[in-house]
């Protein structure tokens, strides 16, 4: 557990991605979810030697393809054309998800609607009347990797905390999230305890007041 730190300003989206990238262990196999997590790849360094997995059957995914490098047979999970790095490999879907489900990926980074203090994740369905449900690989990703980290804004547009006692949105996976990166704080979750690793533009005390869950300050 790292020591508690604080900054005056909120983290920007790039700073959040930068922070996630810095926390990924060297040599890790990593899956970055669609949306904010994809931005993490822009801050990984060559020295880290991280290998990116994409659910549609590839390890060693490179940056987004441009110009002549665009190839419709080489896409990521968001169906965006990407490139392949030296040492890349391709495999079929059952192998790709066996890699996930079998615990072979070190870290998976996902977006979320809500996370509970026990690490339950909701990110696939709002449950809204008339919404067409779509799950994709979200449930497999949530429970498969050795560590699942979430990137999200801490509060909804109406100011409610997305870190909650118990989910009110439909569950994606139970007890799977171990860390949450938000613009105002970074949290570590373990055994129902929420530890605040850092705060940004808010004090620990103010944060504790605004959240519906009990918080522990990192030593």
């Amino acid at each position: 557990m790292s020591t508690f730190s604080t900054t005056e300003a909120k983290l920007t989206r790039d700073e959040m991605a930068q922070q996630v990238a810095a926390d990924i262990p060297a040599g890790a196999f990593v899956n970055l979810g669609i949306g904010q997590p994809t931005n993490v790849s822009n801050f990984l360094t060559e020295e880290q030697g991280v290998t990116l997995h994409t659910e549609n059957g590839m390890l060693g995914m490179g940056p987004v393809a441009t110009g002549e490098d665009i190839d419709e047979d080489l896409i990521n999970a968001g169906k965006i054309p990407v490139t392949e790095l030296a040492g890349a490999s391709f495999f079929h879907h059952a192998d790709s998800f066996a890699m996930m489900r079998g615990g072979h990926l070190d870290v998976c980074v996902l977006g979320a609607f809500q996370v509970s203090k026990d690490g339950d994740l909701a990110n696939w369905h709002t449950g809204a009347e008339g919404a067409i449900p779509a799950v994709g690989g979200a449930m497999d990703l949530a429970i498969g990797a050795k560590q699942t980290w979430v990137m999200m804004s801490l509060f909804t547009k109406t100011g409610e905390s997305k870190l909650v006692e118990a989910l009110s949105y439909p569950v994606t996976g139970l007890g799977c999230v171990s860390r949450i990166y938000t613009e105002v704080a970074i949290f570590e979750l373990a055994g129902g305890q929420v530890t605040v690793r850092s705060t940004h533009g808010i004090s620990f005390e103010e944060l504790a007041e605004r959240l519906p869950v009990g918080l522990v300050k990192a030593a």
């Binding site: 059952a94 790709s96 998800f97 799950v135 994709g136 690989g137 979200a138 449930m139 497999d140």
Partner: peptide, 12 residues
């Protein structure tokens, strides 16, 4: 609606 990995494994 089937989670993607379950879909692949059910086919396999």
């Amino acid at each position: 609606l089937v989670p993607q990995g379950n879909l692949a494994e059910r086919i396999r």
